[in-house]
Simulated scan of single mutants.
Amino acid sequence: MDSTTITTTSTPPVTTVVRGDNTDSVHRARKAARTFTDRLAPAPDAALADALVLVVSELATNALRHGGGRYTLKLSASPGTVTAAISDPNPAPPRGRAPDLNGGSGGFGWHMIRRLTDDLIITPGPGPGKTIHARLTR
């Protein structure tokens, strides 16, 4: 009887935190997400890493535009998932709107986030705000 053993090694859970209050911070958040995925063992495939970077970019941008002008992003990983959790001071949950195809005023972000993630959970706090937990399966 032929037997195959698969051993998966992983570093202890990794966490990265980024705080932002201006548009330059979105670039830092994207860079942190890329560095975060590059340091995971085993490394996620390129499509997952790209999806996480895009989700982080959209979450950070939405927090700045609609969430009160600042955010805290926490990236974490488990053997089966990577999670971007972004907190902002606005308690209102995100809402999708029709994308503006002509004026360039947006409307695409929340739809992309919902499409790219496997699980979205919105929780109250910290303080009066909210936290959006966006999980992607590894």
Rank of each mutant, 00 (worst) to 15 (best):
R28I: 02
P126N: 09
T37P: 05
I122E: 15
N22T: 10
I113M: 09
G20M: 04
G80W: 03
K74F: 00
P93K: 14
G106M: 11
P89M: 07
T117V: 15
I113Y: 06
T72V: 09
D50S: 13
D118P: 05
P93V: 14
P12H: 08
R28W: 05
G109E: 06
L59S: 00
V53H: 03
G67K: 01
T7S: 11
T137D: 05
G109P: 08
K31H: 12
G68D: 01
V55C: 02
A98C: 06
F36V: 07
T8H: 09
P79S: 10
T5P: 00
H66R: 12
A51P: 00
A47D: 15
G20P: 03
R65C: 04
R39M: 07
P128E: 14
A134C: 04
D88V: 02
T15D: 08
T16Q: 12
T131E: 05
P126W: 07
G69H: 00
P44F: 00
S57M: 09
P89T: 08
A32V: 06
V14P: 00
V26T: 09
A41E: 14
Y71M: 01
N102C: 05
I121K: 15
A29E: 05
T137C: 05
D21T: 08
G103T: 08
R115K: 14
R28M: 06
D24M: 10
T15R: 15
V17L: 06
G80N: 12
A92K: 15
S57Y: 06
T5M: 10
N102I: 12
K130I: 11
T61D: 10
P13D: 12
P128S: 14
G106F: 10
L73H: 03
A49Y: 01
N22H: 13
P128G: 13
T15I: 13
D38P: 02
T83K: 07
D21F: 08
R138K: 09
A98P: 11
N90I: 02
D38Q: 13
A84T: 04
S87H: 05
I86H: 03
F36W: 06
R95T: 15
R34A: 14
A29L: 04
R95E: 15
L101M: 13
E58L: 03
S25H: 13
L64F: 02
G68F: 00
G67L: 03
G103C: 09
T23D: 14
S25L: 04
P128N: 13
V55T: 04
A84Y: 01
L73M: 05
S10K: 05
T137S: 11
T123Q: 14
L64K: 00
T37W: 03
A77V: 02
H27L: 12
G20W: 02
A51T: 09
K31P: 00
A134S: 09
D21V: 00
P13V: 08
R138C: 01
A41N: 10
L40K: 04
A84G: 03
T23S: 11
A43Q: 15
A47T: 13
